[in-house]
Design a protein around this nucleic acid. Structure first.
Lengths: 242, 242
DNA sequence: CGGAACATTGATAGAGCTCAAGGAACGTGG
DNA sequence: CCACGTTCCTTGAGCTCTATCAATGTTCCG
């Protein structure tokens, strides 16, 4: 029923680093179970202090912050392999919420074991720090995108980046990948209004560069897409999987 | 000449957590020296793989990313207590540059010792992860600010946040603190043009809310300032110092 | 004195927001 | 099986915030 860490389907991907047998043994003990949730479930809430940490096995979601007036900033798209809850784990409180956009399956870890991890598994601890750095890197890029680019560039960059992540996870088929989000979600991620996001997507579709339809993102002209934005979309580096 | 970790002036602040005697011993060994740099020095360069890690002892700087067309996104203001170079330390490459805005004094650590730190000092490793999480948290807030707020709100939020950090570091006197940055730096941090930043600052000065002059930020009406922005400026939490 | 760096100001234009409405797809209950 | 509500996508019109362009002012320094 539950996936054994030794056979973790994610770790088979080139994207993720291999684990020593000892590492597997520890992960097995660290893992306290699996969680399946419906689309729409809130996994972690801003300000909360969840006793659980997660690694995404399947499905997609959103990290976001809500503002009092109802505005929302989507901080990142959540995909398989992402580690959730680290902030609560070390700082004692989540600084953003996480919500499932599709049904999801998650590996569950006990926060109480986190300290144990640092004490007995320095490799894993290093990996955690790596995770946090990767996230920080992404946020720096996102900030640059929202701060310095036009709507067309932001959307181009954001969707190309999404496709690139999907490819690294083996979720893409040809130039297509799943995109379970609403235009509103994309707008909130890029600091744009829904209406303008829609019109910009139309423009990209008319130009035969990309299209988002029926939960699928298709990139028709990747070359042109990548020259549109001043911020390069990097190939995701091989990284540890927690 | 060189500050002994046991007498680190920063650690005396309430903001930073205390260290056990063993912790001090390790930090002493980890620390390989001090570095004094002039204003304008580039400490770390995007894409580089610096062999050194730093903790800021004195002075201020900027983290930023450059875009090919000359645009720049300031990712954060660098202040005493900040840890620099973690990305290169774990991912092998800096994802942004760091530059000194004022003369600075930095604690220098050898990157080669980093792995040793994880192996023998789990408390310190935990602290590093904490650092990365704090930075991630800040970036999330910055993204929210740039993505969802007006120019007036962004500048109000950004400067209030800066003042709050200064206060926690004991750098503020009354409602004043040093602000060694140019308006262009602030503009690049908030995703605004220089001209509009200037006009918005004028507005805030006319309204007697705050002023930035002669390298000093003065907040005249903190209550009004904090109600302007939909994103609250939090009191910095007590955190470890590396 | 001349130049460099930064702050300030006015005028103009445009990117993106808001408002308002309509259409398509889908599930639910009568 | 149809009516209706809900959710999301699409489109048009008008307006505002912010960018851009272009000068001028100020301070400081060689």
């Amino acid at each position: 029923m539950v996936v054994d860490c030794a056979n973790c389907p994610l770790r088979k991907l080139d994207l993720f680093e291999d684990l020593t047998p000892d590492g597997v043994t520890f992960m097995r003990r660290f893992k306290s179970g699996e969680l399946k949730v419906d689309a729409g479930t809130t996994l972690l809430m801003e300000g909360s202090n969840s006793p659980q940490l997660f690694t995404v096995l399947k499905g997609m979601g959103l990290r976001y912050k809500l503002l009092p007036e109802g505005d929302r900033q989507v901080v990142n798209f959540v995909m398989p392999g992402d580690f959730l809850g680290l902030q609560a784990g070390v700082m004692g409180e989540m600084k953003h919420s996480v919500e499932a956009t599709t049904p999801m399956v998650l590996c569950v870890f006990n926060r109480s074991e986190l300290w144990n991890l640092f004490k007995t598994e320095p490799e894993r601890a290093f990996d955690l720090t790596w995770s946090a750095s990767v996230e920080e890197h992404f946020l720096g890029d996102a900030l640059t995108s929202v701060g310095q680019m036009t709507a067309l560039q932001r959307i181009g960059w954001g969707l190309l980046r999404f496709m690139t992540r999907c490819e690294a996870l083996g979720l893409a088929k040809g130039a297509r990948c799943p995109f379970p989000y609403r235009q509103q979600d994309l707008a909130d991620a890029l600091g744009l209004s829904l209406v303008h996001t829609n019109k910009t997507l139309m423009k990209l579709r008319d130009k035969q560069i990309l299209s988002v339809q029926d939960g699928t993102l298709s990139i028709m002209d990747r070359d042109q897409l990548s020259t549109m934005s001043p911020l390069e979309v990097e190939q995701p580096a091989r990284r540890p999987l927690i």
